[in-house]
Amino acid sequence: MRSYVQGPASVDESSQLPLWRRAETMDLVYVGYGLLVVALVLASYLLGALGWLPHDPQAMNVGLINAAPFTPGHLLGTDFLGRDLQARLILGIQAYFLPGLLAITISVVAGSVLGILAGYRGGWSDTIITYFDNLLDSFPRLVLILLVIASFKPDIYYVMVVVGITGMPVIANLIAGKIAFLRQTNFIEAAHALGLPAHTVILKHILWFNCRAALVIQATLGMAEAILVETSLSYLGFGVQEPTPSWGNMVQAGANYFLQGNFWPSTAPALAILATILGFQLLGDGLNNLLEGKRGK
């Protein structure tokens, strides 16, 4: 049984219900959790950048290795060298935060430019960009990253440039799609006919009014992607190198002790990765449902 109830008599059309009242509870939960994660990451990043850490992350204490959480003085315990896990986890955010932002910036900015060229100019630029996008899409990202690492150096910024570039087609397609939708209703042609200059149409009408929500969503998902790539590479030893902490190399370092029963030093960063990526993903999905409407509706 599903019920359909008539709301208060005659809802005035202009005073639409506020977003949070129209939304489904789960979407709000997603977004709420996501925002919490973003806030935590941001705060931790600042703490790490300013060096306000609960402990010196490099200080070893061989008398207290692989300590469990809630050990006095070490809220989240210590690793195999007796270093404070909490401090290292906070500092680990440095490893992906700025590089991730770089990747997002590259894919959003360059993707938008490509999308506008393809959708707005059309013609040959559309054809060429479509082929370029397909080429990028069909190339395995990890192979490309390893190739870059092999030919330059294992620098996370190099890697993130690759992540940013491979993230462009999604954004470009999204924007080209929005433009195609606006074209269908003759929106763009009507704007030109009125005499609006091209830059107003592109920046104000297309990007600002019709793509900003989608871009924020894609940026959020892009951050999740960047974290995943960084941690995978660090885990494999291609990313951030010891003793600088990164969640990926922390998992890797802790994994050696996992089978001996000291599962915590690797589980803590793994949980951090899981919770953070989940946070960005859910934020993206939740925002998508809230701002763009579900199932294409």
């Binding site: 209703t185 003759n186 929106f187 009125l194 009408h205 009014f209 019709n210």
Partner: peptide, 14 residues
């Protein structure tokens, strides 16, 4: 100026 057949022409949905 032009009046388009499409009712939504020129009306930015946002």
């Amino acid at each position: 100026q032009m009046i388009f057949q499409d009712l939504d022409a020129g009306l930015n949905p946002k």
